[in-house]
Nucleic acid binder design. Sequence first.
DNA 1: GATGAATGAGGCTTCATTCAT
DNA 2: TATGAATGAAGCCTCATTCAT
Lengths: 198, 198, 198, 198
Amino acid sequence: MGGTMDVTKQHRRGNTRQRIQDVALGLFAEQGYEKTSLREIAEHLDVTKAALYYHFKTKEEILVSIFDDLTQPILDLIEWGRKQPHTLETKQEIVRRYSETLAGAAPLFRFMQENQAAVRELRVGETFKERMQGLREIIIDPDADLTDQVRCVSAIFTMHAGMFFLQDITADPEAKRKAVLEVATDLVTQAHRGSANA
Amino acid sequence: MGGTMDVTKQHRRGNTRQRIQDVALGLFAEQGYEKTSLREIAEHLDVTKAALYYHFKTKEEILVSIFDDLTQPILDLIEWGRKQPHTLETKQEIVRRYSETLAGAAPLFRFMQENQAAVRELRVGETFKERMQGLREIIIDPDADLTDQVRCVSAIFTMHAGMFFLQDITADPEAKRKAVLEVATDLVTQAHRGSANA
Amino acid sequence: MGGTMDVTKQHRRGNTRQRIQDVALGLFAEQGYEKTSLREIAEHLDVTKAALYYHFKTKEEILVSIFDDLTQPILDLIEWGRKQPHTLETKQEIVRRYSETLAGAAPLFRFMQENQAAVRELRVGETFKERMQGLREIIIDPDADLTDQVRCVSAIFTMHAGMFFLQDITADPEAKRKAVLEVATDLVTQAHRGSANA
Amino acid sequence: MGGTMDVTKQHRRGNTRQRIQDVALGLFAEQGYEKTSLREIAEHLDVTKAALYYHFKTKEEILVSIFDDLTQPILDLIEWGRKQPHTLETKQEIVRRYSETLAGAAPLFRFMQENQAAVRELRVGETFKERMQGLREIIIDPDADLTDQVRCVSAIFTMHAGMFFLQDITADPEAKRKAVLEVATDLVTQAHRGSANA
DNA sequence: GATGAATGAGGCTTCATTCAT
DNA sequence: TATGAATGAAGCCTCATTCAT
């Protein structure tokens, strides 16, 4: 085997871990977590399944590592948000930056969105839920009336789902993101005004 | 065999098919489609796996049958909507009735929402997509600007996700539904006004 | 169900047993014994599987009944042959009549030919073997040299296989049968002459 | 697990694939293709079913690999035959070498002979048919009269079936093969003479 | 840093058969 | 004369995982 190894294979030196993550995320997003087997990932990389186990202890750990790498910005965003006053400007800034973060890791969020059931019993499911909870605490005023709370929740997953549910609408992706951002900002703003008057 | 069968099991009348659907939907919604095995469904019903195959040709067909039974109202709604003028009132009525339909088949829609990846390659996935497309055509004005189109899409899945994403907010379910409906109606209304002025 | 039964079904009265045999033989010959399920047979007849069990005790018994019905002529032929002197004329007559019998129940013999493995452990397998043995005892002279014995065996299954192995050769079926018969007769004749001189 | 594994099982070198083929062919020939389950093959080898799947993608592929390995000589023979003049000597030589090939892979040919129905829808079935066709084209003169064509076909499967149909005749196997070869050669010779005079 | 070989669990599905009605 | 409903056994196959090398 070693003898027949072609040049492209030798060149990729120590980046196998990264390549596994890339391929895995691609397949997870495309086919779902359960439907994607380690065999499939290995074949795409032209390695054996056992090689995956050199780099990751389990299938779940592959996902965890991807998740941890790509959602760090959200953690930072929440931490930053917690330290700000709960003004309208803060909320709008959170929404703006969240939108950017999502755009930067679209396949992962698409995956999380479309595999909620599969992910629920995985560590990433729990973690993701906690982060969403953190986000809400910053954006939602617990004393606001129910409708305004719904507006905030709606704002968040308008951003989540926006990217994928809008596939049929033909428009420049960045233009779509801007439109989504505008709607989300509107929702948060309305919610804020509502509770300010209450 | 027959001798050890207890009395409750005999004369189960003709309701096994329905019971399979009920149990299956419960498990599909709770654990996801892939994670729910036919063995599990059969055990919950105290029947053998083979009995399931008397009533349904495949696992997928169980899902299809549930889907077809529970989404008939949406089909009716779309058909009705197509024949109405595209006024604001029509759109609001559609949203109102859609909200009711969703509430009437919450577990199924939760399932569809949380298993998009798993469902994508199933017949129900395709069918569901088509129906969503139908809904949009009624609510969205294709000449409206992008932001207003996003508002309409957001309205639809604010209703979809509303029920599940709001679990942490403690409030009467019907009150939540009303709040969600209000936000959705608002979004559609804003969108309509926007494109009316354009 | 009874209420929706269409007219064609009512007309076929008491011939179900025969129809089962016909359909079963067709499918057995076409697909093989193991590959043909009772479900399939029932569907072709537009009856339920259980109905088959009203007429036959087991799957094997369907085959047995077909076999017994269609191979009676061979039994008669062997019985007749045993009472004749072992002359060349007798042998030639046996071959001639055997060829006719085969032509009259081609699907069954095709089936027996192509499903020897499946049939080996069935009652018909054993029975068929015994009959073949009976045929040989009439045609083969046990004192003949090995080559002449082979000629006789070859004559018999030249006839057996002739019908199916000759499919690619385009010619009138009856013409083919005549040709096969001629070759078989030749073989038996040569064998007889050989042992006569020995 | 590893702890209870006995010594003979460790270091089974690289021969598992070959052992699977051997056991499988034995069982296929003895019981038929459909009647032989992978469980059975695995048990004979004291391995798990899953181990079979490490070496072969499907049950059918086990058969294909056996077939390909053992019928290579026939391929060679046909190729050789095509390049020779269609003289009597060539035909006789083909028959002689074919007889040897059959003797060298008797269980496979017995299997093919007795499982025609099962094999018809498998890749090997198609392949085998093509090879037989190739053989005929060399041996049969398409302008010969039907009887002589039948003689050639008869020659071929006199050799095929010879080995198994002759089980009841007690004689040295090699002696039987010689006898079969003689009959087959005779048939081909007669056919050749016939068409030469035509 | 990775492979080859294997495992145990479990997946979906099909089959011949039974039996009360 | 047949159906409806169900069973138990078994089929092929796939999966995540392990471990010696």
